[in-house]
Amino acid sequence: MTVPDPVDRPLLSVRGLTVARRGLPAARLVDGVSFDLRRGEALGLAGESGCGKTTTALALLGLLPDGLVRAGGEMHLDTEHGPRPLHTLSGRGMRAVRWRRISMAFQGAMNALDPVMRVGDQIREAIRLHRPELDRTAADTRVGTLFEQVRLDPRRARAYPHEFSGGQRQRLMIALALACDPDLIIGDEPTTALDVITQRQILDLLDELRRELGLSVLLITHDLSVLAETCDRIAVMYAGRIVETGSVDEVYRDPRHPYTRRLLASFPAVGGPRELPPPIPGSPPDPAAPEPGCAFAPRCDRADDVCRTSPPAARTAPDGTRTARCHLLPWPATSTPEPAR
């Protein structure tokens, strides 16, 4: 087998990732998710709460909570020795990947930080744990550098989490994610509960760090507008599946999946009519009771009989730049439809 040139290999390649409830294989919270993430690229993973975004990220890191299990799929991380299969690693093997290769800025900074431990000590602890070759002096120097990178005064390393504002705590979470020079940072709703000005500052910081450090970023959000100026590509998730992918410009200018259209239409346009946009009717499906056809069919205003009875295959645009999982598209199918569950 010919090994692709490192320049052409994606940093992260995910194929058919499936996460189910333990003992209930039909209850899939993540259902056959596939995507590639290139070096230096920012990919936005968008969708409603409960669609499987955070579960996908936790599966990548081997941090699934009790009751959930990876039921299938492959995940490969590119290294200097070639693609490394994350799905075959033991717990000890995954610990060598976390923070050194892939790190995560968790949602809810106040809950993720230890309230009775100085923030500098928390970052130093992560550094010493994953890079034991560094002594305390080197770790302290690294903590000061990280504070500067996220635009915080290094002298505040001795402060406690409650002494920082919400935006500053989110910067601390980014500093913690950067602690061991990872190749990929996963940002799980990094702007939740922040005002719009602070949101913009955090997103600008992530973008600046990505370009300065050559990072890849997987940005998880339910707010498509957050991804407009931050990401290169978007993957839209619904009911555990990726239903549309494409560049930011393509997806915003011409969304092809009905769910993506409704998501974008739910945000009011600046300068547009002063009225609430129409909501998406209904609720996402129960993973334990999946629909026999397209999962979005009960909420779709364009669904017909085939949508309600047959799961759609992934389809690719003729130019190969984008995909969508919908029966109503004229594009050729690039995968076989999955059997109804």
Rank of each mutant, 00 (worst) to 15 (best):
L152K: 08
L37G: 07
L29P: 00
L60Y: 09
A297N: 12
P161N: 12
L203C: 06
P292N: 12
M104K: 11
R262E: 10
L205T: 07
I123Q: 11
T336N: 15
V251P: 02
P115C: 03
G52E: 12
V150P: 01
I185N: 11
R299M: 08
C326H: 10
D5R: 14
D78A: 14
E275W: 00
T18M: 06
A177G: 00
G144P: 00
R274T: 11
H162S: 06
T88Y: 03
L172M: 08
P277C: 01
R315I: 05
H130V: 05
Y252D: 03
R136V: 15
R98G: 02
R151Y: 05
A26G: 14
P279Y: 12
A340W: 07
L329I: 02
D31E: 09
R39T: 05
T79I: 11
Q122V: 04
A179Y: 01
L64Q: 14
F267K: 15
C231D: 02
T141K: 14
I242C: 05
L12C: 12
G167R: 04
G293L: 07
S34T: 15
F267Q: 06
I174L: 13
V97C: 14
W99D: 04
P330A: 08
M117K: 12
V251M: 09
V14H: 14
D135S: 13
D135W: 13
T198D: 07
R70N: 02
G23R: 10
P278D: 15
A105M: 13
A239R: 06
T88K: 09
P311L: 11
G108I: 15
A175C: 00
T55Y: 09
H162Q: 13
F106T: 04
L203K: 12
R233E: 03
R38K: 10
Q149V: 01
P339N: 12
H327P: 10
L213T: 04
I174N: 09
G214C: 10
R158N: 03
S90I: 02
W99Y: 14
C300A: 04
S103I: 07
L205M: 03
A26Q: 15
P190M: 07
E163F: 00
D301C: 00
R315Q: 10
F106N: 10
D153V: 08
E148V: 01
L276D: 13
E148S: 07
V116R: 13
H162V: 01
L61F: 03
D304K: 15
L263I: 11
V217T: 05
D301G: 01
S247Y: 09
A157Y: 07
A313M: 00
M237L: 08
L61Y: 14
R200V: 03
S310G: 01
L205G: 04
V7D: 07
Q168C: 00
S283G: 00
P83I: 03
D204H: 07
V306P: 02
T192P: 02
D301E: 14
L24H: 13
D195A: 10
G82I: 08
L129W: 11
P287I: 05
R15D: 08
I234Y: 05
R95I: 00
P287M: 09
P279L: 13
C231N: 07
I234Q: 10
R200K: 13
V119Q: 03
V116C: 00
D8G: 00
K53Q: 10
P287V: 11
D183W: 08
L178Y: 11
L68I: 13
